[in-house]
C-alpha cells in the first residue's frame, strides 16, 4: 500500500451557493421544528424576571401601622411597596398633584 492511497485535486472540490439570509435560517428552523429538531440550547434569560421595584422608601411610621401594611400586603399577596404606591396615588388625586 502506498503512503498516499489517493490524491486530492482541490480544483475539483465544489461548493454550492447557499442562502444564509435570516429568511433562509427561519425557513430551515421551521422545517426542522416540524420534525422535532427544536432549539435545545439554554436560553439566555431564564427564571423569574427581576422586579421593576428598585426604589426604596425609608419611612418611620407609628407603632402598629407598619404591621397593618404588612398584614394587608400578605392578605392580598402583593409586596408592601404596592400598598405604598396605591396610597401615594390616592394622595396625588386628593392633592391634585
Amino acid at each position: 500500500m502506498t503512503d498516499k492511497p489517493f490524491n486530492i485535486d482541490l480544483g475539483r472540490l465544489k461548493t454550492r451557493e447557499k442562502d444564509r439570509s435570516a429568511q433562509a435560517v427561519e425557513k430551515t428552523d421551521r422545517a426542522g421544528e416540524e420534525l422535532g429538531f427544536v432549539a435545545r440550547e439554554p436560553q439566555k434569560k431564564r427564571g423569574r424576571k427581576p422586579s421593576p421595584r428598585t426604589g426604596q422608601v425609608h419611612a418611620k411610621v407609628m407603632p402598629g401601622i407598619s404591621e397593618e401594611i404588612a398584614n394587608e400586603a400578605r392578605r392580598r399577596g402583593v409586596q408592601q411597596g404596592v400598598i405604598i404606591e396605591e396610597a401615594w396615588k390616592l394622595y396625588k388625586n386628593k392633592s391634585g398633584i
Binding site: D29, R40, E41
Partner: peptide, 27 residues
C-alpha cells in the same frame, strides 16, 4: 467555507435546531 479547505461539521446526537441549521449549509 472558503477556497482551499474542506469544512467538516460534527454534530451532537440529538434532534436539535443546531442540526437543522448545519444541514442547511451542507454540500
Amino acid at each position: 467555507d472558503t477556497d482551499g479547505q474542506i469544512v467538516i461539521v460534527d454534530l451532537e446526537g440529538v434532534a436539535s435546531r443546531l442540526v437543522s441549521r448545519a444541514i442547511s449549509q451542507a454540500d
